[in-house]
Each structure stands twice: as C-alpha cells, then as structure tokens.
C-alpha cells in the first residue's frame, strides 16, 4: 500500500502561532519587566542606563556556571559540586600565587584544577552508571571543599597583583569586563546547544539515552565532556569571583549550586531532562540578579533573597508541571 501519489513532504519549518506564544520565555520576560517596575518604585534613581550596565557585574560571576549546568540538567542529571570546585580552584590559585607562581600561570592552574575536578565527576558518573549524578557529585562536593580546607585551613589568601582586579572591576568598550565575557559565553553556549552536533546529542540523551546509545552516539564521551566543561566554567567563575573579592577562603561560593540550579530551572529547563532553551536561563539570571539588587535597594536583608530564590525554584518546577499537563491536554484535542 505504498503511497506513490507524489506528495512532496514538507521539509521547511512552518511558523506556528500557538507554539510561538506558548513559550515559557514570555512569562520570564513579564517577570523580568515586573522586577524592574517594582525596583523603579523603590528607588527614584533606579531607572538609568548605568544601573543596567554596572549592576550585572555584581551578580554575573556565578552565571558562568549556569550555562554548563543547563547542559547537565538537559542531560537529566545534576551537579551539586560546582560551588566546591569554585572554592578549590580559587584556593589553589591563591596559594600557588603566594608561593611564587606568576599570576598568569596561577590563573591557568585554577582553570586546570577546576577542569580536572569536572573530569573526575564525569569519569565517576560514566564508569559507575549504577550511581546517580546526585550521589557522585555529593561526595565530590565534600571532597573538593575538604581539599580546599586542607590547603588553606580557615584562612584567607589574596594580595593579588593590581591588574588582576580588572577581571572583576574593569571595563571593556564601556561595558564591565564580566558583562563582555558573559555575553561571549552566552553566545558560545547558545550556539553549541542549539546549532551543533554536540548540543543535539545532549538534547537527545536527555530525552532518551537508550535510543541515543542504539543510534551510535558516544553517550559516555558526551556526559564526560559536559561535566568537564562544567568544571572549567566553575574555574572561570573562581577567577572572576576572586578578582572581585580580592582574596579567597575555602568557604567561598557556598550554596552556588543551589542558585545556579534555581536559575536553570526557572529558565524553563525541565529537571527530567531533554527540554530547555538558552534564552530561559539567561533571563532567569537577570531576574534573580535584579531581584536581589532591588531587595537591596529596599533594605531587605540578604536572607530574604535566599527565601525568594528557594520559592522561585519550587514554584517554577510546579508551574512547569502544570504547563506540561495543559500542553498534553491541548495536544490531545
């Protein structure tokens, strides 16, 4: 009963109104605008260009981890060791610099340490598939921070060269250097995720790892790479964070994993894997960032920000579930 009527099969994507407006990102845009409206009521000086240019540099350093974490969560996994990797790589950088290593080399060492830490995570997860990524990264989270404590005790280490503060405070083309780097990373990661073979495989594995395996995709290598990149980006965060703070201690970046995961999940990335777009987490970074800034303006203490982030995380997971159900229902009609 072959259909040889010669109907050409459509290979061009059609514009779909419902799909276009039924996007999580619109909701985020609304929230984002809402945050600004509230903030501008809180402070008459809020609405000017400089706010938008310089404020982000106060919250962007951890956002570097948001991108690879998005990959991790799209894979259907999780990495809660990122905060510890930041601490470990920052501590090693500071200590080796103070032991006489030239700063550029120390910075490379920082990235190398972080990448190695990510590789260890990736190795354990791919070689011991019986273990969930939760438990693997939970143990390495303790170990990495533990090593940071072994190296530095409870002291701080710093006294970095003058030029190093450029990372956290400097400006390039009139924009804070962090912002420039952030934009760069956003573009690179967005392209990798949505335009490359690697990104396609990541989405595929999050949807159905078995099918990908049977389709000849090197699933182990991809998982390994994703965790390795996560480590590397945590190292980058360590560079910026240390530069901004001027020194480091073994207890820096505690709780980063939560904030980063919250941003990714708020950005519409499903915790069960396979679903998400880069724009969502980017919007979420700015929502949470400006929200914190606004709460600062209103003299609300930092702890309240914790509460809000936690609430956002849980509410967005719940909202995604509801949205998923509605979508299923409408698809069935």
């Amino acid at each position: 009963m072959a259909d040889d009527t010669g109907i050409r099969i459509d290979i061009r994507k059609r514009w779909n109104w419902r799909e276009f407006f039924f996007q999580w990102e619109w909701l985020l845009v609304l929230i984002f605008l809402g945050v600004h409206v509230v903030n501008s009521f809180l402070s008459p000086y809020y609405l000017n260009l400089d706010t938008f240019i310089s404020t982000p540099s106060t919250f962007l350093d951890k956002s570097f981890i948001v991108f690879p974490m998005m990959f991790v969560i799209v894979l259907g996994m999780i990495d809660i060791s990122v905060g510890s990797i930041v601490a470990l790589s920052a501590v090693i950088m500071a200590v080796s610099f103070n032991a006489g290593l030239p700063m550029p080399a120390a910075m490379l060492l920082c990235l190398a340490v972080a990448t190695t830490a990510g590789m260890i995570n990736g190795f354990l997860i791919t070689k011991f598939k019986e273990l969930s990524s939760v438990i693997v990264t939970l143990s390495t989270m303790i170990i990495y921070r533990g090593i940071a404590y072994i190296i530095l005790g409870d002291q701080a280490s710093g006294r970095f060269p003058e030029w190093y503060s450029f990372l956290g405070w400097g400006r390039l083309f009139g924009l804070p250097f962090v912002v420039v780097c952030f934009i760069l990373c956003a573009v690179i990661f967005g392209l990798i995720l949505h335009k490359t073979r690697f990104g396609r495989s990541v989405f595929g594995m999050g949807n159905n790892g078995l099918t990908c395996r049977y389709s000849g995709i090197n699933t182990d290598r991809i998982t390994f790479l994703v965790f390795m990149i996560t480590g590397f980006m945590a190292g980058l965060t360590a560079l910026f964070l240390t530069s901004r703070m001027g020194s480091t201690r073994p207890n820096v970046a505690q709780g980063y994993e939560l904030e980063v995961i919250a941003m990714v999940v708020l950005g519409g990335v499903s915790t069960t894997g396979g679903v998400g777009r880069i724009a969502g987490p980017i919007l979420a970074i700015f929502i949470i960032g400006f929200l914190g800034y606004g709460m600062g303006l209103a003299n609300i203490q930092a702890p309240a920000v914790l509460v809000v982030i936690g609430l956002l995380l849980i509410l967005s997971v719940l909202a995604m579930r509801v949205r998923f159900k509605i979508r299923k229902k409408s698809a069935a009609v």
């Binding site: 949807n207 159905n208 078995l210 099918t211 990908c212 396979g274």
Partner: peptide, 9 residues
C-alpha cells in the same frame, strides 16, 4: 519506542 525513537522529537 524505548530504543528506536525519541518520541518527543
């Protein structure tokens, strides 16, 4: 369904 396809794609 489990090994051959990604149903949501």
């Amino acid at each position: 369904q489990k090994q051959g396809l990604i149903l949501d794609w």
